[in-house]
Amino acid sequence: MEHKRPLVGRRGLIIGTAAGVAAGSLAAWSAGAAQTETPTPDPGGTRGADLDVVVIGAGAAGLSAARVLADAGKRVTVIEARDRIGGRLWTHPDAMSVPIELGAQFIHEPNASTWELVRSQGLKTHTHAHTLSRTRVGDPWKKETIERPYNFQVIGGYQQILTPLAHKLSIRYNTVVRRVEHTPGRVVVHAERQGRRVTYRARAAVVALPVAVLAADAVEFSPALPKEKTDAFKAVPHFAISKVLMEFDKPVFPEDADHVVEADVPWWLMNAAMGQPRFSGRIVFAGAEEDEAERLLALPARKRHREFLEVVRGIAGDRSLTPVKVMEHEWAKDPFARAAFTDSERITGAREIYEPVGDTLFWAGVITDQVDFSHDSGNEAAAQLLNRLGRRSTQL
């Protein structure tokens, strides 16, 4: 079955966006800072210690690269600006009654490389395959089944797939990289952790930061990177996505479909907690992209929430329907992301972006727009680096 517009956005991927990090209550719809999970303690590693490789960024790409390098016997430390792993793969464990995805939502395709991470932990998934649609308000709903489903949601949280990648890695959280000095065979990374300066020295670095962060010159490189590389960073297009999650204490769609396509509504509507055990409520995902997302994001959060709620009320046939909780995150305003979604269909400078700088700086992720692509990119960067460094651990 084909649809005139994607059910969950371009390439079937959603990365969550909207007004900062906001949590709304039933009574006040008030905004507040979402809390992340408490990270596990950093195993091993000493500030300023000489390393084989320093990995900048603990998203899927950075962790994948670090895992391969560590398993090959390299001394590796991962530097992460946030207090959690995952980057734009962010499962919030307790903002609602069940874990919710503020970032990447789905595994795409049955042959994605990340399935190995799902299977290794015995995780369960829910296949998004059922759609309700109607062409006019008041018409009966038509339920359809997608013949070849391509969106699979990890029950209990997508971020779980990263656990084996991060296992026993030295990860330095709350550490913001400011400057990277690089010469042949040596890199010095200058960072800040809670107001203190920290330095890491290594033979090489894997840079696994979003391209929007690199394009904004948030990290200084000395000497400066080649102009063709920085020009390629700045030429990468992005587009806006607005994503709001609303929790209700009862079912709100006419049937238990994964998606609802409503007449004349330019947004995606999805049951975001299908398959969650022992959960009788509903979490509705409402999203928009590009021009419609930009319009919504220009509104005050309360008004944006109200627009989405009115649509859900119309579908439910209940004008008094009120959410228990509301949650959203705007990646474009997140200083460690600076954009929600890379428009991979219009990238022209991938070769320049991934070209190593000497034998010192390697690049992973950067412009990938799916978690499995990030995972693959990290593996490829690590393999490329190992070919340069050799398999045995080196001393500076």
Rank of each mutant, 00 (worst) to 15 (best):
Gln153Phe: 11
Ala364Pro: 06
Arg193Met: 03
Gly62Thr: 04
Ile367Tyr: 10
Ala381Ser: 09
His126Gln: 08
Thr40Lys: 13
Ala235Pro: 03
Val55Phe: 09
Val187Arg: 01
Gly45Asp: 03
Lys229Met: 14
Thr135Trp: 12
Ala27Val: 12
Thr77Phe: 07
Leu123Met: 11
Ser393Lys: 14
Val8Thr: 15
Lys168Cys: 00
Lys234Cys: 02
Ala288Tyr: 02
Val206Ser: 08
His128Gly: 01
Leu117Cys: 07
Lys168Met: 07
Gln384Phe: 07
Leu225Arg: 02
Val76Phe: 06
Ala202Phe: 05
Val188His: 06
Tyr150Arg: 13
Phe336Tyr: 15
Ala112Met: 00
Ala205Ser: 09
Ala257Arg: 01
Arg134Trp: 10
Ser120Pro: 00
Leu361Ala: 10
Asp334Gln: 09
Pro277Ala: 07
Thr368Glu: 15
Gly62Pro: 04
Val68Ile: 08
Leu396Tyr: 09
Ala257Tyr: 03
Glu345Trp: 10
Ala49Pro: 00
Asp359Ala: 08
Val213Trp: 02
Ile353Val: 12
Glu380Ile: 10
Val118Thr: 04
Val213Asp: 02
Ala218Phe: 00
Val219Ala: 08
Asp52Gly: 01
Ser170Phe: 01
Leu386Met: 12
Glu345Thr: 10
Gly16His: 02
Val265Asp: 10
Leu309Lys: 07
Pro335Trp: 04
Ala95Leu: 13
Thr342Val: 15
Lys227Thr: 15
Ile100Phe: 02
Glu352Gln: 15
Leu117Asn: 01
Arg203Ala: 13
His329Ser: 14
Pro266Cys: 06
Ile283Gln: 04
Leu214Ala: 00
Gly103Lys: 05
Ala81Asn: 05
Met327Gln: 12
Glu380Asp: 13
Gly378Trp: 01
Leu63Gly: 08
Ala316His: 09
